[in-house]
Simulated assay, not measured.
Amino acid sequence: MSNTIDRRHFLQLTSVGVGVAFASGLGFDVFAAGPTLTDTFGEDFYFVQLSDTHWGFKGSDKNPDAAGTLQKAVAAVNALEPPPDFVVFTGDLTHTTDDAQERRRRMAEFKAIVGGLKVKDIRFIPGEHDASLDKGLAYQEFFGPLQYRFQHKGIHFIALDNVSDPAAQLGIEQLAWLKAELAQLPPDAPIVIFTHRPLFALFAAWDWTTRDGQAALDLLMPYQNVVVFYGHIHQTHHHNTGHIQHHAATSLIFPLPAPGSVPKRAPIPWNSAKPYDGLGFRQIEAYPWHNYRLQEHPLAVTVAL
């Protein structure tokens, strides 16, 4: 257990704003239901969530460093000590294009860049920019299944696809698959869901919802320890549906306004006085007893260092 203690002490001593200092915008504690473990944790660990890289996007007024921001994020993740157990990209890996050949070129370039991560356990889920125009055909060629499940140190991770269907839904077949996967787990199993769009109706007028997301939440509701991490909205956002917690991540290309705060959803222009403002990635520490500690890494701070 000495390795666990060293890792925990290191994270607590070196992370800025970790814990309940959510007002700082850098740290946030997530506590699931009580300490009734069915699975045994070997040790605490952490993983990193990156989202909405939109490789191939061009727009100097939105991000004049669109061709370099992803590489900076990769370097920042590589500088983390100790390194994360794995890295997950929660969708919109590439920016949409009608040209199937260009779509594949962007995916190849993206994959080559993130191949520079020192951590080789890299997980992906699609965003609508990656998968909605061809129902995920090109995405699967480069990144594998649109939906899948894996287990890591006692936690059950489930990746859902709510983007390859142009209707912005999970669909009957995937919901049946989710039901079957969950049926194998006890009610107190720690479950982490990865998805691109929010499963709840955050702001439907801006496509910030999943049409049949409530059906997925109904399937998850009997489980006591569920946390959802998603992207799509290009900003941090925290929400509860009952005991299920939902946490959106910032983008690595441009921020978007708060839901419904302006008449039209549009990227927030680049702030030359604060380069990379609103961009970043997230560190998620998983502790025994189903606790998760979120630490935001603003890219503006990381690049300045």
Rank of each mutant, 00 (worst) to 15 (best):
N3I: 04
I5W: 13
I5N: 09
D6P: 01
F10D: 10
V16Y: 14
G17A: 08
V18T: 07
S24Q: 14
V30I: 15
G34D: 15
T38C: 10
T40N: 12
F41M: 15
Y46P: 07
Q49H: 12
D52M: 06
T53Y: 00
G56I: 03
P64G: 09
A66R: 08
T69R: 11
L80A: 03
D85R: 15
T94S: 09
H95G: 02
T97C: 09
D99Q: 12
A100F: 11
A100S: 15
R104P: 01
R104C: 09
M107S: 05
F110K: 09
K111N: 14
I113S: 07
V114A: 05
R123T: 02
R123N: 08
I125S: 03
G127L: 04
K135V: 00
G136Y: 06
L137Y: 12
A138L: 01
Y139I: 07
Q140C: 03
E141T: 07
F150N: 10
F150Q: 12
Q151I: 11
G154S: 09
H156F: 03
H156D: 15
A159C: 11
N162A: 10
G171F: 08
A180C: 00
Q184D: 06
Q184I: 00
A189Q: 14
I193C: 06
I193D: 10
P198H: 06
L199F: 02
F200E: 13
F200P: 00
L202C: 14
A204N: 05
Q214K: 12
Q214C: 03
L217H: 05
L217Y: 01
P222A: 12
P222S: 07
N225I: 04
V226M: 09
V227D: 04
F229H: 13
Y230V: 03
Q235T: 03
T236R: 15
N240A: 14
H243W: 00
H243S: 13
H247I: 12
S251T: 10
F254I: 06
S261A: 15
A266T: 10
A266R: 14
I268G: 01
P269E: 03
N271C: 06
N271T: 00
A273H: 12
D277Q: 14
G280F: 05
I284L: 15
A286C: 14
P288W: 04
L299Q: 08
A300W: 03
V303D: 02
L305C: 02
